[in-house]
Design a protein around this nucleic acid. Structure first.
Lengths: 254, 254
DNA sequence: TCACTTATGGTCAAAGTGACACTAACTAGG
DNA sequence: CCTAGTTAGTGTCACTTTGACCATAAGTGA
């Protein structure tokens, strides 16, 4: 049982004290953690990046936050996440899954907000193509390394914990799952899949052994095509053929 | 892009049509799927049971539903789930984890409700001891087999899907996790742990092999005590020593 | 004491895993 | 055209894990 005894002055809705505003019904918001893959010149390996938006209003004005907004009365949770994402970042992810609902009393200093957080995976080229125009124009949207301690330390609200939880979930999921192809294109090389795993698990994997495992376990089939253009033997392209493990675990966008 | 144009006054008790009520802000509710272990005379094996409450009001009056209720402005999500559970079923679970937020537009025929659903595991003896008095007095609370198609088919709202999703999550979690000891007491025999796995996975497991795996992998240590009273060699009692994998994945009740 | 039941400890073959050597096929630069 | 460099892809080997199953231990009740 939570007993809060605060005596502060007025927030933006002008309640006379915290106890009073706490009687208001909680507000529902939807936010999204979006991951994409990018080169990391520091480690040489690819790593996970995510877009953040700068807050233009109090509280936390000027600080970085997850893209999100209130839940429209006519939107399903998924629709709300998707449309908000499109509006704020220009991104249209092909994969959007519910992460968690955060509802602690003190998440926001001004109001009681319950945030239903989704997480998304976008392909590297999508992130570039579609989001570039938005990004160039808008200094309030930017991409950051998902594990950048500097950025995490300065997040608005409890968004730091949210991101860390999303990373934890991602790591747990990639081990038994089919995350990779959602960060890649329709066709991909096994080396690209390996790069995804390496980025998420943050460690190098043996190419030969990794290939063996993928061929037995994962829902991947080879195509007749090869990727040329490298300075070396052209790798074969593969295609994903799997089915989602559970409906709710892989909602797709129309 | 969602353009909501509100030009109405607010009266939540009398909407003239569906489109109109959809403009109201969504209501937040919290429900819980509670699992416990019980003997199943049909299969001889133990199986999962869960308590349901009969609805006393429309919609779905008379049908069975998950215990739940609106989110109080002063309760965290977890508190709301726990206290509602106590009030409606008399149960105080030692384990409560968030399952999913269900927010489709047509979940309830009357209002737009977003339900944040938790799932709980209670020990067999707790379920008996604490809930017995409530159960005996109240014909509107009863336990059912978690996979009883009869009951599932007649659930109120979308609670059937919720239960099936909870079962799916449970099965996925038990494989790599420490679910068993939460359904059992402080000390337990390896056979009891095996019964939990058998109930969740719904298949028989080799006792010898199961023992070998538990001893290497799981966070279980043996005690000096044995359980006597059976018609056979008394099994050694064990104790759980593990730590939760992630805070949000195993919230404990105060 | 014996028959019965579950506990608990082995064995063995099959399958899976990690380390690593080796060959294949392309590009770049002479 | 030839060679060095790079990644693709195959094969091997020791070791670990897993599933099936047998054997013994230690209680109970008759």
């Amino acid at each position: 049982m939570v007993k809060v005894t605060l005596t502060r002055k007025v927030d933006r809705l002008s309640f006379s004290n915290v106890a009073e505003r706490r009687e208001q019904p909680p507000t529902l918001a939807v936010s999204t953690v979006i991951f994409s893959l990018r080169d990391n010149e520091r480690t040489g390996r690819k790593s996970l990046w995510l877009p953040l938006v700068r807050r233009t209003r109090e509280p936390f004005r000027g600080q970085w936050a997850l893209p999100g907004g209130p839940l429209g009365a006519r939107d399903s949770l998924l629709d709300a996440a998707a449309s908000n994402l499109r509006d704020t970042t220009g991104l249209i992810p092909r994969y959007l899954e519910q992460l968690y609902a955060f509802g602690d009393l003190d998440r926001s200093p001004t109001r009681r907000v319950v945030s239903i957080v989704y997480w998304a995976l976008v392909r590297e080229d999508d992130a570039h193509d579609r989001a570039t125009s938005v990004l160039l124009d808008d200094p309030n949207v930017a991409w950051f390394r998902a594990d950048d301690p500097q950025v995490l330390a300065e997040m608005a609200f409890d968004h730091r914990e949210i991101i860390e939880y999303a990373l934890w979930r991602l790591r747990n999921k990639v081990e038994y799952g089919s995350i990779a192809h959602r960060l890649l294109g329709e066709r991909f090389t096994l080396a690209q899949v390996r790069e995804v795993y390496e980025a998420v698990l943050d460690k190098a994997l043996d190419p030969a052994n990794f290939r063996r495992q993928l061929r037995t376990a994962a829902n991947i089939e080879e195509t007749d095509e090869f990727l040329s253009g490298g300075k070396h033997r052209p790798p074969r392209l593969y295609r994903y053929t799997g089915t989602p493990t559970h409906r709710l675990e892989s909602e797709s966008i129309a």
